[in-house]
């Protein structure tokens, strides 16, 4: 009796774990199914080479490039903000700051990542854009600059926390060896500790990039909804995620080509983030083995 119960419980727990696999298959299946139908109507070549994206207009074009550049542009701005600041924070907290300071500040910084993204969107649109317009008069009300900067602030803790963990895991013996030769903390940090923790730091950066690419509400609110093939940070653009939101808010007929565009856009997004996540997972596994 007890054996049967144990057996059933194990199977029950096992099936819970299997749900995660089902989710992945579900995502790939759903995106793939709708995307295949989409690509039977729109050629893949057009999808990747046309520089216009106008599925909701009478003159329909299905070029993903404007959405892709919009996504990459906002993500690039975000990383340009988050990388130097996040990494400096990580190094400062791990190598310079007193223990008690690190203990208080780390959770506070992580609060930055806990703020709902719609709140950041508000901040970008209502506070940052008007502020920047003071310096850049021709900045549009919707633009990738403010959205990117605010997104950068949001992902700072991804880089600072994870890289701090990696730096902290570097054995003190290496630091002592370096100090013992007359190196300053800065030299020790950049010549010894950062190289030793490089894989962990790279993982943190990749995860931050992946997060920026998948971020939706900040860009939907502050970057605009005009798919534009440009790298100009002062004009409205549209990201893949913002487009999906735009269509979802509208009244698009289920089963129509317009409806399927969000799945075609979604699978593009999924593939990009999937690649980034897989790379970071591989690096992380390799790096764990080194320290264990």
């Amino acid at each position: 009796m007890r054996k049967i119960k144990e057996y059933l419980i194990e199977k029950l727990l096992f099936s819970s774990a299997l749900i995660t696999i089902a989710v992945t298959f579900g995502i790939i299946g759903v995106l793939g199914f709708e995307a295949i139908i989409f690509f039977s109507e729109v050629s893949i070549l057009e999808f990747f080479t046309d520089t216009q994206w106008t599925p909701l207009f009478a003159d329909k074009h299905f070029g993903i490039l404007p959405l892709l550049t919009g996504t990459l542009l906002t993500s690039f701005i975000a990383i340009s903000v988050a990388l130097p600041i996040g990494l400096s924070i990580g190094i400062y907290l791990s190598e310079y700051a007193p223990k008690s300071f690190r203990k208080t500040v780390k959770p506070l910084l992580e609060l930055l990542a806990a703020v709902p993204t719609v709140v950041y969107g508000f901040f970008a649109l209502i506070v940052v854009t008007p502020f920047l317009q003071g310096f850049i008069p021709n900045l549009s009300g919707f633009n990738s600059l403010s959205a990117g900067i605010v997104m950068g602030i949001m992902i700072i803790p991804f880089i600072s926390s994870l890289s701090e963990d990696a730096l902290h895991a570097v054995p003190d013996a290496l630091r002592e060896a370096s100090f013992g030769m007359g190196a300053t903390k800065l030299q020790t940090a950049f010549k010894v500790v950062v190289p030793a923790a490089s894989s962990g730091i790279i993982v943190s950066i990749i995860l931050a990039i992946s997060r920026a690419i998948g971020e939706t509400m900040i860009v939907a609110i502050a970057a605009g909804q005009q798919p534009r093939f440009t790298l100009d940070p002062t004009v409205p653009v549209e990201t893949i995620t913002a487009y999906i939101v735009q269509v979802s808010l509208g009244d698009v007929q289920h089963g129509s080509i317009e409806y399927r565009t969000i799945f075609a856009a979604g699978i593009t997004l999924f593939v990009v983030t999937f690649l980034l996540n897989t790379i970071s997972y591989r690096i992380r596994k390799k790096y764990q083995q080194r320290y264990e």
Binding site: A173, E176, A177, F179, G180, M181, G182, A183, Q187
Partner: peptide
């Protein structure tokens, strides 16, 4: 510390090449 060298309990070479390890003190 340049004048007073130190060797530690456990060998603690940097995760760099042999050459880079010995050259470290000079480079910094």
């Amino acid at each position: 510390r340049k004048e007073i060298g130190m060797v530690f309990q456990k060998p603690n070479p940097f995760p760099k090449s042999i050459f880079e390890n010995v050259a470290y003190g000079l480079k910094i």
